[in-house]
Amino acid sequence: MFAYLIASGISTGALYAMVAIGLVLVYRSTGHINFSHGELFMFGGFIAYTFFVILGMPYFVSLAVAVIGGFLLGVLCDRTVYRPLIKAPALTMVLATVGFSFLIKGVARFFWGAREGGDYVAFPAAVDPAPIPIGGIMVFPQQLLVLGGAFFFVVVFTIFFRRTRWGKMMQATAENATAAFLSGIRVERVYTMTWGTGACIASAAAVLMAPLTLLSPDVGFNLLLRAFAATVLGGLGSMPGAIIGGFLVGIIESLAGGYLHTGLQEVSAFIIIIVVLVFRPSGLFGIHKLRET
C-alpha cells in the first residue's frame, strides 16, 4: 500500500510541480501571482485536444502546438493584463488576472464545453493505456510520461537559466529589474518571455495529465490551489523549492488519503498552506526574505 501511495503521490506531485514552476517563474520576475495560471493550463490542454482528437494529428505534434499556443496565451496575458497595470497595487493585479481567468474559461466552455454531451472531454492516452508492472507495483505508462515530462522540463529550464542569454536576462531581471534595465536589458521583453514561458510549461503539463483524468474547463482552479500549496511549501519564489514542494504536496495528499481518511485528500493542500504561512512563512527552502508588496 505504501509503495502505491508514494508512487501515485509522485505522479500527481510531478503535475503540481510543473504547474508551480510557471507560477514561480512569473512571481520571481514580476512579484505578482498569476491567478489565471490554472486556466492557462486548462486552455493548453484543450488546444492539444483540438489537434489530437478533433483533427487527428499525432500526439507530439499536438503537444508542440499546445506548448506554442500556451506561450502565445501567456504573451497575451502579459500584454493585456500585466503591462498596462505594471505599477498598479497587488490587489488590482490579482483582480485583473482573475478577470482574465474567467474570460478564457468562458471561451473554453464556449468552444469545447458542450462536446460529448457533458462538460468534460476524454483525452486518449498517448501511450498504451494498460498498466505495467514496475518494482512490484502497477503503474500507467502515462504516469511515467508525466514524470518524464516533469524531469525533462526541469532539466531544460536549468540549462535555459544557466546557459542561455535569455535565461540569464530573466535571472537578472528577477533579481533587480532596475539594474537589469540600466545594464541594457530590455526588461519588458523579458517580462513577455516570462509570462509566455510560464504558460507553456503549464500547457505541457495539461497535455501530459489530460489522459489520466478527464479534461474540463473547470480543472484549472484546483490545480492552481495545489500549485499555491507547492510554492508556499517550497518558499515563495524558490524554483527548486516549488518543484520539491509540488512532489511533497502530492505525496502528503496521497498518504493522508490512504492512511487517515480519504476526505482529507482534498483539504490537505489548504492545511499545508495555512500551517506553513503561520509557522514558517519562508517555506522549507525559503531563500528570499519576506517581500513587501
Binding site: Y27, H32, I33, A90, V94, L225, F228, A229, V232, L236, E266, V267, A269, F270, I271, I273, I274, L277, V278, P281, L290, R291, E292, T293
Partner: peptide, 24 residues
C-alpha cells in the same frame, strides 16, 4: 491573529486557503 504577520501575496494565499478550508 496569524494574518497580522503576513503581508501582500502571502496574506492573499493564506486567506485563500482559509476560505477553502472553511468551505470544506
Amino acid at each position: 491573529m496569524p494574518a497580522l504577520r503576513l503581508r501582500g501575496l502571502y496574506l492573499a494565499l493564506a486567506t485563500v486557503a482559509f476560505a477553502q478550508a472553511t468551505l470544506w
